Computed example of a mutant assay.
Amino acid sequence: MQEENVNSFLENLKQKVKNQNNYGGKTEINKAQINVRNCPNCGAGRAKQDGVTHCSYCGFEFINTKLTDGVYIKKEDNSI
């Protein structure tokens, strides 16, 4: 009787392993890629990242940002 319980327990475990799903869903298979952008001023290559505003070699400005008053954040007043 003890051996039957062990066998049925092992069979139940094996069945649960076969039926379980991966955490986070199914794995997506994509082709390898590199996100690179060249500086239009000097041609230096850099990794394309959000938030990078200037070329580290020549100083060319990729993104011109100006701060304005927001709901929670106010631009600094340096005249005080």
Rank of each mutant, 00 (worst) to 15 (best):
N5C: 09
N7Q: 12
N19H: 10
T27W: 09
K66V: 04
L13K: 14
P40T: 09
C58S: 03
L13F: 01
Q15R: 07
N5F: 04
Y72R: 04
F60M: 02
H54G: 00
K75F: 00
A44R: 09
K26W: 08
F9N: 14
V17K: 07
K75I: 05
G45K: 10
T27N: 12
N38T: 05
N30Y: 03
P40S: 03
Q49L: 08
F60N: 01
D50Q: 13
C55L: 07
S79I: 01
Y72M: 03
N35H: 00
Q20V: 02
L67R: 05
L67F: 08
K14L: 15
C39F: 09
Q33V: 04
E76D: 03
K16H: 08
D77R: 03
Q15L: 08
E3R: 15
V6M: 07
T27K: 14
Q2T: 00
N19Q: 13
N7A: 15
E76P: 01
F60L: 00
N41I: 02
H54M: 05
D69T: 02
D50N: 08
N19S: 02
F9Y: 11
T53Y: 07
E3Q: 14
G45H: 01
N35Q: 14
C42T: 02
K26N: 13
T68Q: 04
A44Q: 10
A47F: 07
E11R: 11
F60T: 04
Q2H: 15
V71K: 13
V71H: 02
K75Y: 00
N22Y: 15
I63K: 04
